[in-house]
């Protein structure tokens, strides 16, 4: 992609685990040490130290599954919301633009934890939605605003000439957006979306306050009955670490593939 005449300005959204870059040797080594170190320590605790670590590892896996469900569900929904918001933010229609901007401003001004509480219990008041879905919606609404800014920046990073060329061929704005601008913008926003995914994976632990039995909640349940707080949170931290490092690596590889594929 870097060879394209239409070179895109990279979007810098600094959040989440750093996606390892092969060019950054120091970071790459750190990734290896952290990832394999965390796996080694986990295995040692589970099988070498046994009690209560083995019990904890047995207790939490369904929580990992819930964490995944919330994360993947929320990132998909947030991407859709983000795309619509991003398009709204660059719309010439004053009403649509205003609505999208208002949404972004409101969401960015409220702490994530407060929003999650608010959306979850607000949803509960007015519509009957199961808890897991409510949690996913709450996360997605929060992240949708940030994703909207990612998409807006991504779309605006595509040179103006692309839209003009498409229009001059007789395409409508919608056709030009779908056929020309968005396919290019998606490649630009992929790295920031990857970052958002990692951030969301970590922030998904916040849904544990909604009594969604995610990884953190499972750990808290275990600890609150056995009082082995230190051991439990050690395990929970290790599992989160392995997951975020694994996914940041995976996203890094995906990006590399995508760039090389051109």
């Amino acid at each position: 992609m870097s060879k394209n005449p239409t070179s895109h300005t990279p979007i810098d959204v600094g959040d989440g685990a750093a996606i390892p870059n092969k060019n950054d040797a120091g970071l790459f080594t750190a990734w290896r040490i952290a990832f394999f170190g965390a796996i080694f320590v986990s295995l040692y605790l589970a099988f070498g130290k046994s009690d209560p670590y083995y019990e904890i590892f047995k207790f939490v896996p369904d929580g990992i599954l819930v964490t995944f469900k919330v994360t993947f569900g929320a990132i998909l929904l947030a991407t859709c919301i983000g795309l619509i918001t991003g398009l709204g933010r660059i719309s010439d229609n004053r009403f649509i633009n205003g609505a999208a901007s208002l949404y972004v401003e409101v969401i960015r001004g409220i702490p994530l934890l407060v929003q999650i509480f608010y959306i979850y219990y607000a949803l509960g008041r007015f519509v009957k939605i199961p808890d897991m879905l409510s949690a996913i919606i709450a996360m997605a609404v929060c992240y949708g605003a940030y994703m909207g800014e990612v998409f807006r920046a991504g779309i605006q990073s595509i040179p103006k000439g692309q839209m003009e060329a498409a229009l001059s061929l007789g395409m409508s704005r919608g056709q030009a957006m779908r056929q020309v601008i968005l396919p290019q913008a998606f490649k630009v926003v992929l790295p920031p979306i990857g970052n958002e995914f990692i951030a969301l994976l970590k922030d998904s632990s916040l849904v544990s306050i909604l009594a969604v039995s995610d990884l953190l909640r499972r750990g808290r349940e275990y600890a609150s009955e056995t009082f082995s707080y230190f051991e439990t949170y050690t395990v929970i931290a290790l599992i989160y670490l392995v997951m975020t490092l694994f996914f940041s690596k995976l996203i890094g590889i995906m990006e590399e593939r995508l760039n090389a594929g051109k």
């Binding site: 005449p5 060329a165 001059s168 061929l169 007789g170 395409m171 290019q184």
Partner: peptide, 20 residues
């Protein structure tokens, strides 16, 4: 305006080919 643009081609200084 799309009807007009269908009938009138345009060539730009910076080519503006679709890179994807």
């Amino acid at each position: 305006i799309c009807k007009v643009r269908e009938e009138i081609g345009m060539v730009f200084q910076s080519f503006n080919l679709f890179p994807h």
